[in-house]
Computed example of a mutant assay.
Amino acid sequence: MTTLVAIKGGKDGLRLHLNESAGWSDVIEALRSQLGQGAQFFNGARVIIDIGNRPLTEEQLAELMALMHEHHLEASALASTSRESRSAARAAGVVARPVTRSITAPESPDGALFIWRTVRSGQIVRHHGHVTIVGDVNAGAEVVAGGSVIVWGRVRGIVHAGALGDRTVIIGAIELRPMQLRIADLIARAPDGAAAGHPEVAYIDGDQIAVESWERYRRANRSDL
């Protein structure tokens, strides 16, 4: 099956890869569906739109920008090998650049992101795949991931796993005391009275988010860990 829209991470941030050979209406509808499913993931994000060699008219670019604006998404640049597309972008006030594949950051096979620091108040970590943090997620900080989130530390801020709609992901931490937990389209807070300092895992059970000890989760022979 042809992939019409793909999300990738790199040293320059998130990239939206739009299929350069498929029909434009098909690409736009696929993008509309992707943005709708991952509303929380994309909200407020800045992305580079990579259209490859597709010649984009000013009307098509206007349609694309309107769709992104509708979903509170900002285009930091349009990447294309097509001069016509780059000219249309500049005419619309969008930064245009040639496609440079070498700027993509190396990733693990599953597209995971590894962070060796505390995420402090006011900071947002946004990644399309899994995220592992060695450090804390402080109150006022936010982690938004398309995959699972594992924190080797305390979670006091907001963590949203499965932000692109995946309900099979988990959130794990040495201490879960978040302002808010989200998995896919579900929202929860840490349970009152839970023992501090004991590793816990949050996951979807039925139609709600469940939180239990790491050891109990492992003993259940779940394949996620």
Rank of each mutant, 00 (worst) to 15 (best):
G38D: 10
W116T: 12
A163Y: 04
G135E: 07
L113Y: 05
M1P: 10
L181A: 02
A184D: 06
W152Q: 15
G157P: 06
W152G: 12
L176F: 09
F42L: 07
I183Q: 01
F114A: 08
S25C: 03
E74K: 09
A96G: 06
D50W: 12
H198M: 13
A30L: 03
R83E: 14
V5N: 04
S223F: 13
R182M: 14
G135W: 12
G44R: 09
A88C: 02
N43F: 14
W116M: 13
R216G: 13
Q123W: 05
D224M: 08
E63A: 11
L78F: 13
S25P: 03
I49R: 04
S87I: 10
H130L: 00
T2A: 08
A30I: 07
D224K: 12
G23E: 15
I174V: 10
L14N: 11
S87P: 00
V155D: 00
A173I: 09
A105L: 08
E74L: 02
G146H: 05
L67R: 10
I7P: 00
I204G: 01
R86D: 05
A30T: 07
I183W: 01
R90K: 10
G157Q: 07
I170M: 07
A188P: 07
G165R: 10
N43E: 14
L64Y: 03
L181R: 03
G197K: 01
Q37N: 12
A112W: 00
R216A: 13
G23R: 15
S148K: 07
G146Q: 02
S148D: 04
N43S: 15
E215D: 13
E215R: 12
S80E: 09
R218Y: 08
G193Q: 11
S102P: 01
H198P: 00
Q180N: 06
I187N: 11
R15W: 10
S223V: 15
L181E: 03
D185I: 02
V119C: 02
V5L: 02
E58K: 15
A89S: 02
I51S: 05
I150G: 01
